[in-house]
Design a protein around this nucleic acid. Structure first.
Lengths: 137, 137
DNA sequence: AGGTTATAGGCGTATATACCCGTAATTGAG
DNA sequence: CTCAATTACGGGTATATACGCCTATAACCT
């Protein structure tokens, strides 16, 4: 049974997600939510489609994932002024605070990895992942 | 914004899943189902918990994922003879046939990656993923 | 201006994933 | 042998992910 590249990535992704989710749980965020909020902060006020494109996520997936964040008061979804079709995403103060509060836990998870996988190999992993994505996308 | 190891893995996993799912779609299997069937074949008749452990999957996740396969007649779930609590998983002939039929598509997807990421780097990726998992699990 | 085309999203549906809690069956201590 | 502890699993709930179809809005062409 030859190793399936996809299976290896999926397994590693599950493991990483579980590891980070455990670390972030006290802060009340999943790693998906944390990453999404941080990316939304970096993007600023942005439409759903544009955010999805930036995050390499399906549009409808991003739309659905906004649900829990919106219910938690972390983001607001408002109709675009110039284009009535667009739904603009705004990270609320509560969302920014949640990210700030979660950052120590996230850093701790990051450090747990960095402490056991030397910087060169970690950088190489990121590089190979990026290369893989450019091939498979 | 420092790169989150988890986010990078999740992104790559999504990309890979989409790539392989597209390749496998004509065969009527998702890559998750394909990988699961192949692992079940390798394991032989096995209980749900034991299979989940072998696949590094949550037990309840594996149990749920059996649903579509069972509905499609790819696997049978039978009560264990020696232990009435166990549910033994058996890949049916239909399941084996589905795997056989999907293998060309899978190989094509594998080859599309191998053709653009040289063997050394691909092997390194697998090695780094394994290392990551051993750290984060 | 009006009709056609294109774009932005929502909703239905389905799979994938994992947590918690409850139940059934086995194991083990005495 | 009995009963407590353990183990195996199902179901409820929730998030994450994506496809297809539909609607609303905008843009474009004549």
């Amino acid at each position: 049974m030859l190793p399936c590249h996809c299976l290896a990535l999926r397994r590693a992704s599950r493991t990483a997600t579980s590891f980070y989710d455990t670390a972030l749980a006290p802060a009340g965020l999943t790693v998906a939510q944390f990453a999404m909020l941080r990316q939304l902060q970096a993007l600023g006020r942005v439409s759903i489609s544009r955010a999805a494109q930036a995050m390499q996520l399906d549009r409808t997936t991003l739309g659905r994932n906004l649900g829990p964040l919106e219910r938690g008061g972390m983001v607001r979804i408002v109709v675009g002024e110039t284009d009535g079709r667009q739904r603009m995403i705004e990270v609320s103060d509560r969302g920014e605070q949640a990210v700030r509060q979660a950052i120590p836990a996230w850093k701790s998870a990051q450090a747990a990895i960095s402490g056991r996988l030397n910087p060169g190999r970690l950088a190489l992993l990121h590089e190979l992942l990026a290369e893989f994505e450019s091939i498979a996308s």
